[in-house]
């Protein structure tokens, strides 16, 4: 094998490759259809909107990597609550932005602690725990952010929508965040512990890994990132709205699955999240460009998720 071939072979093994390839082809199909018009604009939009799925997707990916039964259903409620709370505290004042960010992150940390407390104290599966807490926090968000939609401080709004040579600043920051989280995943004791627990929790315990603490930290991490996402999304979309988190329950899980992370746990990759987020947005754009309605778009999205999991996911039971 020549070195180039070997590099190509190595590349083909990368689980995130397919998400990027799919995103690229969908983008190509779109611009072929439009005759090259708006090719860059579509990419810019994809980067901007993909950012939010990636932020929550990172948290969800860490949780899912903990192994079967682990999933965070409280992400939408956390986003909404964090967005509403921070917008209200900042009250459109630029000087309060930092405080607002702290509030959003604080909301996330609290939700995470609450989630894990439920899991541990009530000994219930994480799905039920995060489901129940999502009810509570969704309500808290509604009650707290009632009434008029509070606008974000101008500087925050400007920052979240600003671009450098066509690239959204937010996307650049999220890429940096993704890189950091990838390093955490592969290069720190905590990240290794998450992956180890996802593969074999008993063996992890016998290998001196603190299973309880790792799970706790992971649920807090997921909720904190949801809080952060609620904060920037509120800035981006001109204020917190009560259903702004809704689509991110599905989106956060979808980007994890399409991005090549194993739903059975123990195997994760960050780049795939970006590939999947871009793909999901570009797919919708392509179907839009083709003049297809919302119905077809949703059906396609769903079928793609199922196909990906069927092809990549389970092992045959051999019966």
């Amino acid at each position: 094998m020549t070195p180039t071939l070997r590099i190509a072979a190595r590349l083909l093994e990368k689980p995130w490759l397919w998400a990027f390839a799919a995103a690229f082809f969908v983008w190509l199909a779109t611009i072929v259809f439009t005759g090259g018009q708006g090719a860059a604009a579509v990419l810019t939009a994809a980067l901007a909107f993909g950012t939010f799925s990636v932020i929550v997707g990172i948290g969800q990916m860490y949780v899912i990597t903990l192994g079967p039964g682990n999933v965070d259903l409280s992400i939408p409620a956390t986003m909404t609550f964090a967005g509403a709370a921070s917008m209200k505290i900042m009250d459109t004042q630029d000087s309060m932005i930092f405080i607002g960010l702290l509030v959003a992150l604080g909301v996330g940390v609290s939700v995470g602690i609450f989630n894990y407390a439920l899991i541990r104290l009530l000994r219930i599966p994480p799905i039920i725990a995060t489901l129940s807490s999502s009810f509570v926090f969704q309500s808290a968000a509604i009650a707290y952010g009632r009434g008029i939609k509070i606008k974000p401080p101008p500087v925050l709004a400007e920052f979240t929508t600003a671009r450098i040579v066509g690239i959204p600043i937010l996307a650049i920051f999220t890429v940096i965040l993704a890189v950091i989280m990838a390093v955490v995943l592969h290069k720190t004791v905590y990240g290794r512990s998450v992956i180890a627990i996802g593969q074999n929790p008993r063996a992890a315990g016998f290998s001196g890994i603190s299973v309880g603490f790792t799970r706790f930290a992971t649920y807090v991490l997921s909720a904190t990132l949801a809080g952060l996402c609620g904060f920037v999304l509120s800035g981006f979309s001109g204020g917190a709205s009560l259903n702004m988190g809704a689509e991110f329950l599905l989106a956060s899980i979808a980007v994890v699955v399409i991005g090549g992370t194993s739903v059975a746990g123990g195997f994760a990759n960050i780049p795939g999240l970006w590939g999947a987020a871009l793909f999901m947005f570009l797919l919708v754009t392509m179907l839009n460009t083709f003049g297809l309605g919302a119905g077809i778009r949703l059906i396609m999205t769903g079928l793609i998720i199922i196909s990906v999991i069927t092809l990549a996911g389970g092992k045959s039971t051999g019966r």
């Binding site: 739903v263 769903g302 793609i304 996911g313 045959s316």
Partner: peptide, 19 residues
């Protein structure tokens, strides 16, 4: 038959039903 996680399959189906 494919030993799939039902959460993900039904999540995907929720898009399909809605569409």
């Amino acid at each position: 038959l494919r030993n799939l996680p039902s959460i993900v399959v039904t999540l995907g189906m929720s898009f399909v039903w809605l569409g």
